[in-house]
């Protein structure tokens, strides 16, 4: 059993990734001095437009690429330590799986990589396939015959084959129909209830808003904002007063009372904005005049 060094599931300090060209010159600064802390047991959302550094962050955390500067630790161990991978589940952006295997075979293969014994696999594989909603007929088909939604489901199953403590989900609802999307959200919430830590990277802001405790918005490799979802989407300049059982007369008196205070257009409530609005506002505010909001920052 690995002894965690601290309470953070994921922690990065000054994490920077600069992609270089053939001659070793800086080409793209994909991530710029990212400081990030994800607490154990929370569902954390990583948001940003295309090329903002979300996938780069995940790749760095999984050791698929190496940082140019900075450090990162996962479940208390430095990234690149393969041993810690036994407690991590990863669903890539697309389901990159062996297309010549069928659903059951692929899960058994990944199970063997975790050295899960045959008996446990015999129980866990059908259970996971049921969980992600792949029927008996589908699980015997080769992955190359799967639809995109089915491939996402089997991808999710493989991410959970080891009953991980930390799950990294990169665009988990891509390709899923509305029902599948709902099921995915329910699954994430169920994982949260089980005490798992989930790092969710998505463009579908409504999804993130529904399930995440906290989020970070990345833009051009830099962290723009990080906070509780609830805090971020509140409009604090507007006050909503909720009261049960007010009569029409009482409501009118309340409005007149507020009007006497010099306030017009009284709507006694705290309306929330959507996360999408917040997201778009941040992107718009940080995009220089005449430039696209898509892509990495200057190197």
């Amino acid at each position: 059993m690995i002894a965690p060094l601290n309470d953070a599931a994921v922690q990065t300090e000054g994490l920077t990734k600069i992609y270089k060209d053939f001659w070793g010159r800086d080409k793209v600064r994909a991530l710029d001095a990212l400081d990030l802390t994800i607490r154990r047991g929370e569902v954390f959302g990583l948001l940003g437009p295309n090329g903002s550094g979300k996938s780069t962050t995940i790749k760095l955390l999984l050791g698929l690429i190496f940082p140019t500067r900075g450090t990162a630790s996962v479940l208390g161990r430095p990234v690149g330590d393969t041993e810690i991978n036994s407690r991590i589940g990863f669903l890539p952006e697309e389901s990159y799986l062996y297309r010549f295997l069928n659903g059951e075979e692929i899960l058994r293969f990944y199970g063997k990589l975790f050295k899960i014994d045959r008996k446990t696999l015999n129980q866990r594989v059908p259970m996971l396939l049921d969980t992600v909603g792949l029927d008996a007929k589908s699980r015997k088909r080769k992955l190359r015959e799967y639809s995109k939604g089915m491939a996402r489901r089997i991808g999710l199953a493989q991410a959970m084959i080891n009953n991980p403590d930390l799950i990294l989900l990169d665009e988990p609802t891509t390709g899923l129909d509305p029902i599948g999307t709902r099921e995915m959200k329910d699954l994430i919430l169920s994982l949260k209830q089980q005490g798992k830590t989930v790092l969710l990277c998505s463009h579908l802001l409504a999804d993130v808003q529904d399930v995440c405790n906290r989020i970070t918005i990345l833009f051009r490799g830099k962290k723009m904002v990080e906070d509780e979802v609830r805090e971020l989407i509140q409009k604090k300049e507007i006050t909503t007063i909720e009261a049960r059982g007010l009569s029409d007369q009482q409501t009118e008196e309340l409005r007149q009372f507020i009007a006497r205070m010099g306030v017009n257009g009284v709507n006694i409530t705290h309306p929330t904005t959507t996360l999408e609005d917040l997201f778009l506002r941040i992107v718009r505010e940080n995009t220089p005049q005449g430039q696209s909001s898509v892509g990495s920052g200057p190197s």
Binding site: L62, L64, T82, E83, P92, Y96, Y98, Y110, F114, Q158
Partner: peptide, 14 residues
Amino acid sequence: DNRVIFTVVTKPTT
């Protein structure tokens, strides 16, 4: 190239 290796190297495989 097709990123299948993502799902292998992110397991406890050296």
